[in-house]
């Protein structure tokens, strides 16, 4: 059963309140967030893609006086198509986060995808390694999430590195 979309609290997220404001004909939206509150403040990375190609990235840490990085770029329709393929191939849309580890003091991750008629929103704890995946109640589902997130981050970091010539993290 498809669970209803959870819209995360606007207090925590940069991008959440934009989801419905710019929805083009073909619905597609991806947002990932990973962060925690700690000694160095609210440390997080967050990125989002819209169907029209708009892509935003934000990353904050106060560690050694690092500061917020916010980047916006527009990717081509071929890039969005490739992103859709990666998401489709992962079969993440079939997963459910009900049995995934709950967010905790170490932090949380969120992945929100709106694709066609489907809208999924996952929330789980940070995953250190595959050991955490294997030890969870839904290793198959969590593994899908774990690898998809890595593949998405890898893509975003490449885009930022090439477009801006900075190391995003």
């Amino acid at each position: 059963m498809r669970k209803p979309p959870k819209i995360s609290s606007p207090k925590t997220h940069l991008f959440t309140d934009n989801i419905f404001s710019t929805m083009p004909a073909e619905e597609f939206y991806v947002r990932y967030y990973s962060g925690h509150q700690g000694r160095y403040g609210h440390e997080f990375i967050e990125f989002e893609f819209h169907a029209d190609g708009r892509c935003r990235y934000a990353n904050n840490s106060n560690y050694r006086n690092d500061s917020l990085i916010k980047k916006e770029m527009t990717v081509s329709s071929l890039m969005i198509k490739e992103l859709k393929r990666i998401i489709e191939d992962s079969e993440i849309m079939k997963e459910d986060d009900q049995k995934w580890p709950k967010k905790n003091v170490v932090g949380k991750q969120e992945l929100e995808i709106r694709y066609g008629n489907e809208h999924v929103s996952f929330e789980t704890a940070k995953i250190g390694s595959l050991v955490d995946v294997q030890g969870s109640e839904d290793p198959e589902g969590l593994r899908v999430f774990y690898y998809l997130v890595q593949d998405l981050k890898c893509l975003v970091f490449s885009l930022i590195t090439l477009h801006w010539k900075i190391k995003p993290i």
């Binding site: 029209d52 190609g53 708009r54 527009t74 081509s76 071929l78």
Partner: peptide, 11 residues
């Protein structure tokens, strides 16, 4: 292969 520019001007 499908090839295109990765970045375009904003809408």
């Amino acid at each position: 292969l499908a090839c295109d520019f990765a970045f375009v001007k904003p809408s």
